[in-house]
Simulated assay, not measured.
Amino acid sequence: MSEKERKAAQQFMEAIPHAKALGMQFTSLGDGCAEMKMPYDQRFIGDPETGVIHGGAVFALLDTTCGAAVMAHPDVKGTTATIDLRIDYMRPATPGQSIRTRATCYRVTRSVAFVRAEALDEDDTSVVATATGAFVAEKK
């Protein structure tokens, strides 16, 4: 990640308090792609018996990663907002492991950007959830 991308990512995270509260961190950003991770935290457990992270925390991570991918697209200027985001949960996240996400902004129209993403455990064995979404985006 370049210094310019690092600064943009930092500004993005500071503008979203819940992202900071959930411990989200960028691992890669640029050219319409973003990758983030969220460490396992007992505060985010949805099922105390199994220790599985709540789906809402996974959703928030995917939404944030998708928005970052839109902002990192070379044809987009300015900020973005979620219009629609569909999440398909494939399996529970593995208790004790960080969750990693990667998103790609694959199409930008005059005012809407389209994104695909996935969430995985840190060991990359299989997908926890997938996402497809539409975001407000002003084309350059």
Rank of each mutant, 00 (worst) to 15 (best):
E5T: 06
R6P: 09
R6W: 10
K7S: 14
K7E: 15
Q11A: 15
Q11W: 08
A19C: 15
K20D: 05
A21Q: 06
L22N: 13
G23P: 02
S28D: 15
S28Y: 11
L29I: 05
L29S: 08
C33W: 00
A34M: 10
A34N: 10
E35Y: 00
M36S: 10
K37N: 12
M38A: 05
P39H: 14
Y40R: 01
Y40G: 07
I45N: 10
G46F: 06
G46D: 04
V52Y: 03
V52R: 01
I53D: 03
G56S: 07
A57L: 01
A57S: 13
V58E: 04
V58W: 00
A60L: 02
L62K: 02
D63S: 03
D63C: 03
T65F: 00
M71E: 08
P74E: 03
V76N: 06
K77T: 11
K77R: 14
G78S: 05
T80C: 11
T82R: 02
T82G: 07
T82N: 13
D84H: 15
L85H: 06
D88V: 12
M90S: 12
P92V: 00
S98I: 03
I99D: 07
T109M: 05
R110I: 02
A113R: 01
F114A: 05
F114Q: 01
V115N: 09
V115G: 06
A117D: 09
A117N: 10
E118I: 10
A119R: 14
E122R: 02
D123F: 03
D123T: 06
D124P: 02
S126E: 14
S126M: 11
V128W: 01
V128T: 08
A129E: 06
A131V: 07
A131H: 10
T132A: 08
G133C: 13
A134Q: 13
F135P: 06
A137C: 13
E138L: 13
K139Y: 00
K140S: 12
K140Y: 06
